[in-house]
């Protein structure tokens, strides 16, 4: 089981004719993802790895029924792409594009909210649900099973690369994943961890969640408050990278754009303390995820 993705996931790729998008199209098709079409204005009638290209989503919807969009258009075109997707009734939009202007990102959030759609990203490496053989984005590359095997652990990660490495820790511990989400490295993203924890709480196929956190934002603090208030009652393993940034000059970005401590906010130590107080299991080293998972599942 899983959240957000299912056997019914039917994908349209916006910007499918780009270099990275067409490579990813091949990988996700190989994995089993149902890609019903791609959109690049002016390229209707072309094919990308056997997938038909349309000028617009509405043109595609005449022939296909997409319910999920994977966005690969350039930064300045993302806002319009999301508008098109929500106007076409698409309810899950995954934005891979990096460097989306912040003024556009805030509008994207509100457009999605108004339409009752979920946005993952921008600046996400994608998401995956192995039990359904669905993945969106470069996640797992051409060797998906290496890190991602089916199971009952949800993964939420602020880092794209560490989504795979964290899922691999789950695999090493002898377990598998339900849904893994790279939420995006930007300060303004569509779906913060709390929203995902809500869904994982509801999902019968998820028994525990591992969260990969970073400095900056209040995502982890918000998650801690959510757990404390009883919103998420399953075991939560939390890791927060970048403890060293606390001894660096404030206001410096290390890693992702959102990874910045300013005015004393966003410190990994504060995040870990709040998560621990809320009852989460803290992995002080990323390697600790393995024994913590074993501890959770051996208790049962």
């Amino acid at each position: 089981m899983s959240i957000l993705l299912s056997d019914d996931t039917r994908v349209v790729i916006q910007g499918i004719t780009g270099r990275e998008a067409s490579m990813v199209t091949e990988y996700i098709l190989q994995y089993g993802t149902k890609v019903v079409g791609g959109v690049t204005p002016g390229k209707s009638g072309q094919m990308v790895r056997g997938v038909p290209v349309y000028n617009t989503i509405s043109e595609l919807m005449g022939e296909q029924q997409a319910n999920t969009s994977l966005v690969y258009v350039p930064p300045g075109a993302v806002l319009d792409a999301v508008r098109e997707a929500v106007d076409s009734g698409i309810k899950l939009i995954v934005i891979i594009t990096e460097n989306v202007p912040q003024h556009d990102s805030i509008k994207i959030n509100w457009l999605a909210k108004k339409a009752g759609a979920k946005v993952i990203g921008p600046n996400s490496v994608g998401m995956i649900s192995p039990a359904h053989h669905v993945k969106l984005g470069a996640i797992g590359g051409d060797n998906t099973e290496r890190c991602f095997v089916p199971g009952t652990v949800g993964v939420i990660s602020r880092s794209g690369g560490m989504t795979a490495e964290t899922a691999w820790m789950v695999k090493r511990a002898g377990f598998g994943v339900s849904t893994c989400i790279s939420i995006g490295g930007d300060p303004i993203i569509g779906t913060p961890p709390v929203e995902l924890l809500k869904m994982f709480q509801e999902d019968e196929g998820t028994e525990a969640v591992v969260m990969f956190g970073e400095p900056g934002t209040s995502f982890e603090e918000d998650a801690a408050n959510f757990v404390k208030s009883g919103g998420f009652t399953k075991p939560l393993i939390a890791f927060v990278a970048g403890k060293f940034t606390e001894s660096m000059p404030e206001g410096t970005v290390f890693g992702h754009a959102a990874s910045i401590i300013s005015k004393g906010m966003g410190k990994p130590s504060t995040k870990m303390k709040k998560l621990e107080e809320a009852g989460a299991l803290i992995a002080y080293s990323h390697d600790d995820i393995i024994p913590l998972l074993k501890q959770i599942f051996e208790k049962r």
């Binding site: 880092s159 560490m162 990278a241």
Partner: peptide, 11 residues
């Protein structure tokens, strides 16, 4: 990687 480099530095 954004996250991987943070983690490695800590370690």
């Amino acid at each position: 990687g954004g996250g991987g480099s943070l983690l490695s530095f800590d370690e």
